[in-house]
Design a binder for these strands. Structure first.
Lengths: 350, 350
DNA sequence: GCGAGGGATGTTATCGGTAACTCTCACCTC
DNA sequence: GAGGTGAGAGTTACCGATAACATCCCTCGC
């Protein structure tokens, strides 16, 4: 920081006002100022007014760092998430952020890299013991969740409903499995012989929920179970995944792990000369904002990510403050939104 | 925090290790530990090894809060942004985050509400003087930028190129105006008599850059200048904005303020029985990931938001540390990506 | 009249670090 | 052998708050 020329020392405050400056100007002790700010302890109305006036004058703002260091009440959360450009994560984040802000918490967001390990996650916390929310829809998120020390106050939005043997009470999830099964049954009910599935990357080593739900429904109906295709998160990956398959006229229904994949699938189908929904029905997952405006508009499973995010914060809030936190808000169950991209199977009598 | 059952006091550390614990166990002073951690000052190899071993043993992590409080080097940035679900903001954020993380900065993100005022913005900073980046593409962002005290080290990604009279050296932007003009000229070159424009909400009271560029090009070509339509950010808003207009066969080309608007516009056109691009050309802005996969795929202006975000951090880095910060990386100029949604005007001889 | 009670404040310790200064030797020079 | 030097470590102050404890003064009860 070089300084050239004349600077009058008086009107260029080198650092902003601290609680001590306020105390000095107001002629009281620094502790009294703290009392006024936090509304704790007794202060005479007169003194309070004076202090408040000085605070206004000096434009004093409490330093959050110092406050947290000194063991003030936990009023901040860090959200760990990987890719905020994915609709699901972004919407969940929005819900979390809104709920937290409304409850008076300040929200920090820390973006996870695919390769980050345990040490790295601990590094992101401002202080040991910081409250954390994790969006664990993908691999990076799940790993971050796993590597979080058990003593940090945490709540997570996860893909996978925990097994019955060890349910973590601090997790929320949407019933992807039932939703995928429902969407699959819907397609079967339209007369399709079977349904193909393009999967998003799995966050676990096990079969992902959506894949399982799809398989459940096919098995229950006694239909052939095709090998699931492995897509990524992007339209491009959906496009590439189904290209080998999509020209086959026996393929009449494809369920996609998210709406972006469905977009790629529809393009691949068009390029193969197949008409949607006449020759081929496509169903997505998420009900992202563009879905209703695509051509054809996309039949998809609406997931209440925002509600889930709000609920996740509600859970965390109760964990931090079991006495005073309000009840955890409910969120909506997945819902199939039928639009133009799905129709009775070609040649069916529906 | 209720505790039931027996807890052995020894193996449940009430709080995680501090630098003092490390010092005590290692049998050195706390300052020596600090020296080892920061690599400043001289420490014998032997002592260093011992301290490091103890750090490992105790799982010690420095408390960032305390470090920042104590005036350690500024190693953190807060990004102020409004809606992370918009492609432009999300992509810029990704660029900023990546660049900052790579440079060893920790990144916090704080989401602006539409109604947040001056006081509110100051409130978000962890401490007065915290480094900040602002994504000011919309009204909330611009207001946040304006209400930032002049002494905070800041860099911003803005929509509007600052006027020549008082350019702020700590801002970066994309040349939206030139890009919009270019896209408009492209459409005119296809034989369209004029081009209609659906605007995104303005971040300034003046005419937004994209609107100006569009008007520039029409004026330069001596074409009629239609009243710009006012959309929002969503496909729905684009749909609603153009519905009254789109049935008119004399409207043959529409430029949209972003890709989402274009999506809504295309749907409105289809519903009005107009064929794209046969009857009507539609051009978007942003080149968001779905654009290439839409039906028809969207001609759009590609904007290097990620590069802009990286550059913005580069700028901030130089501001914080003029000596050592690397050069500010370059970003790409806007580029028109021609796809299926634009074609020669109906009846033209092209 | 005097100790008890309690409202309004001040004092001191503490959080977990960093920065600046000090201290202690071993070694080197003249 | 006295004094200077510099590496390696310790001491102390400070960052800006909160929390616990101490103090002052005034009023009330007996």
């Amino acid at each position: 920081m070089e300084v050239t020329g004349h600077i009058s020392g008086e009107d260029v405050p080198r650092r902003s006002a601290s609680i001590w400056d306020v105390a000095r100007v107001a002629g009281v002790s620094q502790q009294t100022v703290s009392r006024v700010i936090n509304g704790k302890g007794r202060v005479s109305a007169e003194t309070r007014a004076k202090v408040l006036r000085v605070i206004e004058e000096l434009g004093y703002r409490p330093n959050k760092l110092a406050r947290m260091l000194a063991g003030g009440p936990v009023r901040s959360v860090t959200v760990l998430t990987s890719d905020t450009s994915l609709y699901g994560a972004a919407a969940t984040l929005r819900g979390m952020e809104e709920a937290a802000r409304t409850a008076g918490f300040s929200v920090g967001i820390s973006v996870l890299e695919p390769g980050s390990g345990q040490r790295d996650v601990a590094e992101r916390l401002n202080r040991p013991g910081e409250a954390v929310m994790v969006i664990a829809y993908d691999d990076a998120g799940v790993r971050a969740l796993a590597s979080l020390p058990p003593d940090v106050p945490m709540a997570a939005a996860v893909e996978r409903r925990p097994g019955a043997e060890a349910p973590d009470p601090w997790q929320v999830w949407l019933d992807d499995r039932a939703a995928a099964a429902h969407a699959t049954r819907y397609l079967l009910s339209l007369g399709h012989r079977t349904v193909h599935y393009v999967a998003i990357p799995s966050s676990t080593s096990d079969l992902p929920q959506r894949t399982q739900g799809w398989a459940d429904a096919l098995r229950a109906a006694g239909r052939p179970l095709p090998e699931p295709l492995h897509g990524g998160w992007s339209p491009r990956s959906g496009y590439l995944a189904v290209r080998p398959l999509v020209a086959d006229p026996s393929v009449t229904a494809i369920l996609c792990g998210n709406d972006d994949l469905a977009l790629g699938v529809m393009r691949a189908a068009r390029e193969a000369g197949r008409h949607i929904p006449g020759d081929l029905s496509v169903v997505g997952f998420d009900d992202s904002p563009p879905a209703a405006y695509l051509n054809p508009s996309l039949t998809t499973v609406r997931l209440d990510f925002e509600g889930l995010g709000r609920a996740c914060f509600g859970l965390l809030h109760r964990r931090l403050d079991p006495q005073n936190a309000p009840a955890v808000p409910a969120w909506s169950e997945p819902e199939l939104i039928v639009r133009e991209s799905s129709a009775p199977a070609p040649g069916s009598t529906f």
